[in-house]
Amino acid sequence: MREGIMNLAPSTSFDHRDEITAAYAAWDSAFNKADSKAVAAAYVSNAKVLPPTHQVISGPEEIENFFAGLFSGGFTDHKLTIMDAGGDEKVVFSTAKWTADGRGSDGSRQSVGGLAAHVFERQADGSLKLRLHTFN
């Protein structure tokens, strides 16, 4: 290292894929039980959800209401599949493919899906909670 240049490489290695896969499994489980309170609990108090509707969903109450609306619209069988992950001991990010079943305009079941990006904040107990969630 040259004098005056700081080494910014993290000194600790984290297995982000495993912990994000676990966070995704818990989130999918809450979604698939149509438990909007449990879904909202996966987010920090000042979190943002940015859906393809261009709404900005902020905080626990709005997040809970947003997902309750999806559940009343018949969305089920959600699955997140990790594509990429990174971060450090405080902030972790991931991209994922998502799929779910919903209702078409005629009431029939139809599969939907897209891409999602997530930014997690590590909590004092070591768990991850979502700070930012956007999807298309």
Rank of each mutant, 00 (worst) to 15 (best):
Thr21Phe: 02
Glu19Ala: 04
Gln110Leu: 11
Ala100Gln: 08
Ser72Pro: 00
Thr134Tyr: 01
Phe31Asn: 07
Asn136Thr: 03
Ser29Arg: 06
Ser94Gln: 09
Gly102Val: 01
Gly114Asp: 13
Phe14Gly: 00
Thr76Asp: 04
Gln123Cys: 08
Gln55Ala: 10
Gly113Phe: 04
Gln55Asn: 10
Leu115Asp: 04
Gly86Asp: 04
Asn7Trp: 13
Leu70Arg: 06
His54Phe: 08
Ser72Lys: 12
Val56Ala: 09
Asp125Ile: 10
Trp98Leu: 07
Met6Arg: 15
Ser58Val: 13
Asp15Leu: 06
Tyr24Arg: 07
Ser127Glu: 06
Ser36Arg: 00
Asp77Trp: 08
Glu64His: 03
Phe71Asp: 04
Ala68Pro: 02
Phe71Cys: 04
Asp106Val: 03
Ala124Val: 05
Thr76Gln: 09
Arg109Lys: 08
Ala25Gln: 06
Gly73Thr: 01
Leu50Tyr: 13
Arg131Thr: 09
Ile63Ala: 00
Gly107Pro: 05
Val92Asn: 02
Ala9Leu: 15
Tyr43Gln: 08
Trp27Cys: 06
Gly69Cys: 04
Ile82Trp: 04
Gln55Pro: 07
Ser36Pro: 00
Pro10Met: 00
Thr81Arg: 04
Ala85Lys: 03
His54Met: 11
Pro51Asn: 10
Glu62Leu: 06
Asn136His: 01
Val56Ser: 09
Glu121Arg: 11
Ser105Asp: 13
Trp27Thr: 09
Asp84Gly: 05
Phe75Gln: 13
Ala25Lys: 10
Ser58Tyr: 13
Arg17Leu: 14
Gly107Asp: 10
Arg109Asn: 06
Asp77Val: 11
Gly104Asp: 15
Thr21Pro: 01
Tyr43Ala: 03
Leu132Cys: 03
Gly102Leu: 02
Trp27Leu: 15
Ser72Trp: 01
Leu70Tyr: 08
Gly104Val: 05
Ala9Trp: 14
Phe66Ala: 03
Thr53Asn: 11
Phe14Asn: 02
Ile5Pro: 13
Ile82Val: 14
Lys90Glu: 11
Glu64Pro: 01
Leu128Glu: 07
Gly4Glu: 14
Pro52Ser: 14
Ala25Arg: 09
Thr134Ser: 11
Lys97Arg: 10
Lys79Phe: 11
